[in-house]
């Protein structure tokens, strides 16, 4: 088999590098997906989280070979959607974005939750975001923003 074939934000893509390369590095360096942030490279902060087949995964803990035949979505491929707009508005209304470094991962964690559970409880939101470290906000604004997005964006998920 030649190359690693996958869909990246809706586009068929073929990666010719090593199957052992880290998805996080490849997304940032080869495909210029700079929304994907490197916070620890150990799966402990969620700043690099992406969706693989709609499921939230830390891209620092994925080797390229594993994504062959899969579909990856980063914020670059999500930010034009109505769902993103609903989340963005909810975050803006509560000023839930401070330094911003955790936010792309946080948004995708919210999307992963809402696509599975359109009307989550606060506890479910907290669980869904529990792998995404934010040092700025104390989380309340972010958790409430996700709850508000679910309410305001009713029908989108």
């Amino acid at each position: 088999m030649n190359g690693i074939h996958f869909r990246l934000n809706g586009k068929d893509t073929c990666y010719d590098g090593s199957a052992a390369d880290r998805l996080l590095d490849v997304l940032r360096d080869t495909y210029d997906m700079k929304s994907v942030k490197c916070g620890c490279k150990e799966g402990e902060c969620g700043a690099c989280a992406v969706l693989i087949d709609g499921v939230l995964v830390n891209s620092c803990c994925v080797a390229m070979g594993a994504v062959d035949a899969h579909e990856i979505v980063t914020v670059e491929g999500y930010r034009e959607t109505a769902r993103f707009a609903a989340l963005s508005k909810a975050f803006a209304d509560l000023s839930a974005v401070q330094c911003g470094f955790c936010i792309p991962g946080m948004i995708l964690a919210a999307e992963a939750l809402l696509s599975k559970n359109a009307h989550p409880t606060e506890e479910e939101v907290r669980t869904a975001l529990s792998g995404n470290i934010c040092r700025c906000t104390g989380y309340n604004a972010i958790v409430n923003a996700v709850l508000n997005a679910a309410k305001e964006g009713d029908g989108l998920w």
């Binding site: 052992a20 150990e42 799966g43 803990c61 994925v62 080797a63 594993a66």
Partner: peptide
């Protein structure tokens, strides 16, 4: 290589993976 969550943290140099996922 199944999930990668431990393996990728270990950062094995020149790894050749057998992807089982």
């Amino acid at each position: 290589y199944a999930g990668g969550t431990d393996l990728m943290v270990r950062n094995i140099p020149d790894a050749v993976y057998l992807f089982l996922n």
